[in-house]
């Protein structure tokens, strides 16, 4: 009996171990490598930085290696305004688009959750349908739509909304359009999941107690959907901050988002240490909202116990 229970215990522990193993291999190890590069210096060599860690040198080698590490790249980041501006630009674009995504996504998710049961699977399908074509192709399609003799200008001039074709491409507007379009499913799906599992008799109970419909939304529906709001916000905000493809293809060249800056450092300047330092700082920056969300979830978990 006892050994059997022990064995089952081991099985349970092994299952718990799998996600940690995953995190270790696919997050922690690469992160440590990037961190190491960020503390190195550029060099005209292969790989283009030094020192390079040599396992064969043993303990003495490790000591020597550690002595050569420096925080120069991080110092550079804080001294040149271009990096700070990139970060701010990224945060600004991510914040504004996340708010817009919420404003657009919530009514869509709400409508889906309140639609007749039999309509809901096709509606969910419709939301994820864009994923069936390549992301790059969809962004190229937007270039087509937004360019000077593109579809958007065509339609707007025919509707007499504008007199002359406007320049949409290579602007922040184009970035926002691309982001809103690409990230909408990531906002809608968690919101839909939260709204869909809400007990509809709660709405009737509120009405029964004298609460008009619009007020029921604020007092019952919205508070109960907050976990969905938090999940959707994180799912959009974090990847948007690091977004590279959309601003690169649709945006202008005045200010770059941090993803573009990183790319430039890495491929144009071949400055791997600075590129790594940008990535490490970005991660530190993004850790704040993630930890905040974790705390929030922890609290709601404890509350529901």
């Amino acid at each position: 009996m006892r050994t059997q229970a022990n064995r089952r215990n081991w099985g349970a522990r092994l299952v718990v171990l799998v996600p940690y193993l995953w995190l270790f291999v696919f997050f922690l190890v690469p992160f440590v490598i990037v961190l190491k590069i960020s503390l190195s210096q550029t060099a005209l060599a292969l790989p283009p930085y030094m020192p390079v860690f040599d396992f064969a040198a043993g303990w003495a080698g490790l000591m020597e290696f550690t002595a050569q590490l420096s925080a120069d790249s991080f110092r550079l980041l804080s001294s040149d305004a271009i990096y700070l501006l990139s970060y701010l630009k990224s945060l600004q674009i991510a914040a504004i688009s996340t708010i817009l995504l919420l404003a657009i996504g919530y009514p869509i998710a709400y409508g889906m959750a309140r639609a007749p049961r039999s309509w809901q699977p096709p509606l969910v399908m419709a939301v994820v349908l864009p994923f069936w074509t390549s992301f790059l192709i969809r962004i190229y399609a937007w270039i087509n739509i937004l360019q000077r003799d593109g579809l958007l200008n065509d339609v707007l001039t025919r509707l007499h909304a504008i007199d002359a074709p406007a320049a949409w491409l290579s602007s922040d507007t184009a970035i926002y359009i691309g982001i809103l379009y690409s990230y909408l499913p990531f906002m809608v799906l968690p919101l839909y999941a939260a709204l869909e599992k809400m007990d509809e008799t709660l709405l009737e109970a509120a009405a029964d107690l004298g609460c008009p419909r619009w007020k029921t939304f604020w007092l019952v529906t919205l508070p109960l959907s907050l976990p969905g709001v938090a999940a959707g916000t994180l799912l959009c905000f974090i990847p948007i901050v690091g977004e590279f493809v959309i601003p690169d293809l649709l945006g202008g060249s005045e200010t770059m988002m941090i993803g573009q800056t990183l790319w430039t450092e890495f491929f144009s300047n071949r400055d791997w240490p600075v590129a790594s330092a940008i990535a490490v700082s970005l991660l530190g920056l993004l850790l704040v909202p993630i930890l905040f969300y974790e705390r929030l979830q922890q609290r709601s978990l404890e509350g529901s116990r």
């Binding site: 109970a205 029964d208 109960l224």
Partner: peptide
């Protein structure tokens, strides 16, 4: 419904999970 002088105790109670007992009763 919200104007009827009639109140209902629901089959599944339909209590608001995000509110305390007090807030539920005072709703």
């Amino acid at each position: 419904p919200h104007r009827r002088p009639v109140n209902m105790m629901f089959q599944n109670y339909a209590l608001f999970p995000h509110l305390t007992v007090e807030r539920n009763i005072g709703f």
